[in-house]
Design a protein around this nucleic acid. Structure first.
Lengths: 123, 123
DNA sequence: GGATCACATCGACGTCTGTCGATGGGCCCA
DNA sequence: TGGGCCCATCGACAGACGTCGATGTGATCC
């Protein structure tokens, strides 16, 4: 039997030898996937830059053609990233004439904050 | 010339037709990569679960053998994920005897918060 | 000292993801 | 009505990523 672990203040089955996990539990698999999806949207340098550009824009919004050049990516690629950000609920998309204007979603900051709390615990 | 965009309160070169980007600027490429690296560590369901398990553990720490079963992954895979979380500065690793104990890093929550502020603006 | 245990590393494999050029669909202006 | 512009979608491709079994490395126990 292992003395070190036996002294730990957790309920451990009295089995000799080996590591007996104290049945720890965390987030459910589905919940974890939802949270990961939010962070995944922020897990790419291009999307981080795109989001920061929009957030710091004078009007708080920008269209694809405003974003292509600053990030140095092709138009389809920028469009693809914006789609992911929109699907994650981090930006909103508004079609005005030929242009598609993107703005940081109202609940974006809170979405990240609550996700963080869900993982780390909101104590 | 496009009337809609010409009325926008941004300095736009007087060029006829086409989208003339108002030279928007956001985070630097290197800064964006650093931030994305933090979020990337949280962009996987398995790592989200692992982190939440550790955060909710009675002692605030857990070893690999405590984590393998709850997430339903092999030991090498869990070890791999913990390595990534540690490299991201989200968890700390402490070797005690045969076991490696992982705990949520002291500055984990702040790391995510400051990263979020850097992207969305800390207004 | 030999057996056992916890963990890290390695090599391999399938899948996901970021990127591009080409193309198509709307909208606007002349 | 025709042409030009913005944007989304498609198909393709390289690279990154998650996962596993097998193996190596220390530390512990008998």
């Amino acid at each position: 039997m292992d003395l070190v672990r036996a002294l730990l203040p957790v309920v451990v089955p009295a089995v000799a030898g080996g590591c007996r996990a104290p049945r720890l539990a965390g987030l459910a698999a589905e919940t974890a996937s939802d949270i990961a999806r939010t962070f995944k949207a922020l897990a790419d340098p291009a999307r981080v830059r795109l989001l920061s550009i929009i957030a710091s824009a004078p009007d708080g919004e920008a269209c694809i053609c405003d974003l292509t050049e600053p990030v140095g990516l092709s138009q389809p690629t920028v469009s693809h990233h914006m789609r992911l950000l929109a699907e994650a609920g981090l930006v909103t998309r508004e079609q005005r004439g030929r242009w598609a204007y993107f703005a940081v979603a109202p609940g974006a900051r809170e979405l990240v904050a609550t996700s963080t709390d869900a993982v780390l615990g909101d104590l």
